[in-house]
Structure formats: structure tokens, C-alpha cells
Design a binder for these strands. Sequence first.
DNA 1: CTATATACGTACCGGTCTGTTACATTGTCA
DNA 2: TGACAATGTAACAGACCGGTACGTATATAG
Lengths: 218, 218
Amino acid sequence: MARKNLKTAGGETIDKSPEKSTGAAAPKRKRGPVAADRIKRTARDLFYREGIRAVGVDEIVAKAGVTKPSLYRSFSSKDELAAAYLRDYDVEFWTRFERAAAAHPGDPKQQLLEYLRGLSQRAQRADYRGCGLSNAALEYPATDHPARRVSEDHKRRLRARLVEMAKGMGAKQPDVLADGLLLLIEGIFVTGQLFGAGGPAMHAVEIAETMIEASRGR
Amino acid sequence: MARKNLKTAGGETIDKSPEKSTGAAAPKRKRGPVAADRIKRTARDLFYREGIRAVGVDEIVAKAGVTKPSLYRSFSSKDELAAAYLRDYDVEFWTRFERAAAAHPGDPKQQLLEYLRGLSQRAQRADYRGCGLSNAALEYPATDHPARRVSEDHKRRLRARLVEMAKGMGAKQPDVLADGLLLLIEGIFVTGQLFGAGGPAMHAVEIAETMIEASRGR
DNA sequence: CTATATACGTACCGGTCTGTTACATTGTCA
DNA sequence: TGACAATGTAACAGACCGGTACGTATATAG
């Protein structure tokens, strides 16, 4: 199975950025739970890069520099940790999406193209692993899985947001245009991982623009 | 983790269709390896429905009604079994694709739309789990994994085939149209699992047609 | 009717998986 | 100082993982 071999995996404990050389200025740091954050940050990296099923809790706590009981004190199960990771991912997504939108106030077409320009670039990078939420949904087909719930909810909201934007673009059939854009976006997520640089993501902006224009004309 | 519990999983041994009530007609059945086929068929179902990582070899052999050594006599590892499953899947895909094409000789646009009509329908079924090859690639990001190799190779061939068809459609920029169609198709694979009936796959044919027409005009 | 090859099963291996326990240690605040 | 919160230590459990050494049934060939 080409198993993982935790020991020789290299990749030492991730940077313990807070604390360490405590300058005199720090107000005695009333620290509060820090292990949970480190776990979530580490889990985010590993889950995104390798997939949720592929990563064990032992690997997470080892790389995070904490211990297993700390993980289970903050998260009731690995599944819940995965769900927490996805909730964070959801927030990150919308931050990026709305930041792109904010660059072109009142112009939904340019808002979307702005987002797609960034996505198109990211999707061609070697370390690109698609959308964490889509990936999680594929990893967990069972609809009652905590991770899957977060993903499905997210995608429904994205679809709704796209319909809203499609209306603003003046599409004759906003539902159809929105679905076209959603299919396109999900396509970028997947093909980005499959083809890397020079993949179909390369032409995504151009394609989206054609799609939007065509939806108006007809 | 909500583990599986093999014992109570129900789902008895799959139908042992060949053999059993051997009529007098059967020429003494020189039987030959039958376990390997049962394993591959069972693996196909489980891998597709639940994902490769999610399924253990114990579950496969149990449902196939055979034993583990039989599996390892025919396949050098689980990874190789997964690769074999994907090679079969690849054949199935092209059979379906070319069958759709054969329905509209010399008309690449209708050939593709024919395929998309079928896909659009399938993608809205409750048991739809997307493209086994795409899913496998997401499950195994490492490019040297046997399963991943099969998937990447398949996707490259699909992309090339779409370029060829896009040329036949008279697209001004066949590469761009082909990528648009590929993004669309991958989008259907993913959203089919996420939204089921009434999902974006519903509008896929309409969107593809618009895309193709727009690619000619401009 | 034996000899051999084929196809398969029984029983097991060492290791890893998620999840849990009881208890010790540390730093912080009152 | 003493209570408290946060974390670590060091095991353990029970299931499951991929993989294998070895015995067994069957059928054909000679």
C-alpha cells in the first residue's frame, strides 16, 4: 500500500511562531488554549494537501507539536476536526470571493472575472489541490457525515450567490448562467489538480466571459 | 471516526451467477480463475460508490465471497487493484463516449451533445458518484501513484479528443472551446454528487450548446 | 490410478487506525 | 501559597490495515 512511515517523514514540527522569545513588552501572555489552534492550522495544511482520509491524527499531532489528548479535548472526533477545518475553509473562500467582488463595485461580471483571474492562476500552481470543500464531499459520499454537511451547505450558498450575480449581469436565464459558471468553477477546481500549469484553467476567464456575453445576447 | 464494522455491514456476498446449478449440458466446466473476476467486479462497485481509500481489502473479499490470498494472487497490491479498476473504468468511459458519437456520424457538435445528454441524466441520479478516474486522482495527489497515473493519462486523452472535436465544430479557437467543454464535463462530474437531481447538471446541455455556438461566431 | 498443476481457503503476521484512560507537570492569577 | 486551567506523559483498547506462509480440494494428463 506504500504506507506512510511517520518516523522518516521529515517535516519537523511546524513553526511555533507565538511565544518563544518573549519580549518584555508582552503583557505576561495569559495564554489560553493554544494547542487547539496549532492543531487546526496543521490539520488544515495536511487535510488540504493530502486529503482527510489520508491523514491520521497521529501525524497531525506530531506535526503540530502537541499530543493526542489535546486534540480530543478540543475536538470530539477526527470527523469533527475535519468539519472544523472545512468551516474555516468556507470562511477563507468567501473572504477571497468577496474581496474580488469589492474590487468592482456594482459590476457583477467584472467581480466574477476578477475572482476567476485569481483562481485561474492558483489552479495552475504545482501545489494546487482544488477546493477543500469539494474534495471532502467526494471523500465522504455519505450525506450524514459532518464534513459532507459543511460542503453541501457551502455549495448551495455558492450556487445562490451566483444566481444573484447572474441576475446582476443581465442574463436572460440567470439560473442557467449561474449553473454554467458553477460548472466552470468546479471544473477548474478539479482540472487544476490534474493538469497543473497549461491546463484548462488557463482559458477559464476567456470562457467565462464568452458564456456571460452569450447569456445576455440570446 | 464512525468506523465501518465489517461484521454487521449486512450486504451479503454478491450473486455467484456462474456455476452453481450445473446443468448436464455444461462441458465439465474447466473453470479457470473465477475469483479474480469476482474481485474486480466487487472492487469496482465498492471503489466507485465509497472511494478507494474508504474500502479495505477485507471488505472487498468478503463481499466478493472469496479470500484475501486470492486477491493477492491476481493483483500485486491494493494499489494495483485500484489501477486495474480504473483501467476498466477508462474502457467503459470510452465505450459510452464513442457510442454517443456513433449516433451522429460526422457531426461532432451533436456527438458531444449526445454524450452530455446521457451524462446530464446520470449525474442527477441519487447513486451518482461522479467520474471514478477524477475521484481517484483527488484521492491520490501523489503523481507516482499507480491509480493516479491511469487517471492523468485518461484525462489527457479526453482533452485531446475534445480538441479534435472542437476543430470539427468549426471553432475559431479549438483549444479554448475544448477546455471549456472539459471544464464543463468535470463540473458535471463533481456537482452531480453534490446536488443530485435539479443540480447544475440539469442545464449542462443547454450551456454546452451556447458555448459551442459562441465559439464559432466570434 | 497416480502425479502434477491449478485454484482456492485457513490462519495468522506486524503494524496502524481512531479513540481513551489515569496521572503528572507547568504556568497564571488571586 | 494555593487553586485552576492547559497541556504533557505513558500507556492501553479494539478494530482494521495490507500482506503472506502453508495446507487443501479438484481436475486433468499420463
